[in-house]
Design a protein around this nucleic acid. Structure first.
Lengths: 144, 144
DNA sequence: GTTGAATTTGATAATCATTATCATAATTAA
DNA sequence: TTAATTATGATAATGATTATCAAATTCAAC
């Protein structure tokens, strides 16, 4: 099975924080890793319940918070209300082009944009740690 | 008094939509225009109530939605929960550098970043309409 | 200016995502 | 095995936003 690396990261993190391992967190982590989508907590909860129907939504929220803390996931918010969680570890950083018609999105990155952000930050004496760039427009399918 | 231009835009928009003018909406618009901050609906509501204490929060939300539709305002969301509303009309487009320590932010823009976004969009056949770029880091004050 | 149809308003209920609470269950170091 | 600590799930609480609805206001037509 894959994901050993991610599981190791998570388990080390949990141990280092003085927390304990649990079956539920393992299930949630694996389901998250297997699903290459930008899921909401609620959507992930539905998937996890297929394996273990007794898993509570609160535990899903708690675990997602841990996943973000240890660098396996990252929060993302398109226009809508709910936070979405995307894979972070082992994934190239990317920005998002969100279609205002169909709601789908494309992931893309321009290394020059990244560099220029650093330059902009330096200009205002800011230590840059990260960024979120959301571009809105109409995708190729919806243009037709 | 200033803001004639903005008021004209709003009134034309309201009329065009078949809506009616109202004292409350005028108050909310003026308070919004006078306050050069990124306010939440709740914060704006507090300010408006100083003029007319009976103004309801629902009307503030309804009016802010109209202001966004007619291009006078734009929604923005930092890390926190509430949507913030910034001035849009007559303001240069800008991005935000948010300090993860103190929560303050700086507005800045790099014309080259803007251009490169257009190039990136073209590459994936996307018609760009707008974007939101949030950069996170530590501001100059908090670095000391 | 009056009328009347349509819209607006404020109070409040409803909703939706998320967090807090708490009694019980599971984990883990000794 | 024990004992202390953490995790869990159910559910209440919260906070932001939206929906509902009766009463008030607007405004075009007379």
């Amino acid at each position: 099975m894959a994901f050993e690396e991610e599981q190791k990261i998570f388990n080390s993190f949990v141990k280092e924080k003085g927390l304990k391992q649990s079956k539920q967190r393992d299930d949630i982590l694996l389901t998250f890793l297997k699903t290459e989508k930008h899921l909401t907590a609620d959507e992930l909860h539905s998937l996890v319940k297929k394996k273990n129907s007794s898993t509570g939504i609160a535990t899903v929220y708690r675990t997602l918070k841990l996943l973000c803390e240890c660098g396996l996931s990252s929060e993302l918010r398109f226009g809508d209300r709910a936070v979405r969680y995307e894979h972070f570890y082992g994934h190239e950083h990317h920005d998002h082009l969100v279609c205002v018609k169909c709601g789908n999105f494309i992931e893309a990155v321009d290394p020059e944009i990244e560099k220029l952000q650093e330059r902009l930050a330096k200009k205002v004496n800011f230590s840059l740690q990260g960024h979120k760039l959301l571009m809105y427009g109409v995708c190729s399918k919806c243009k037709k």
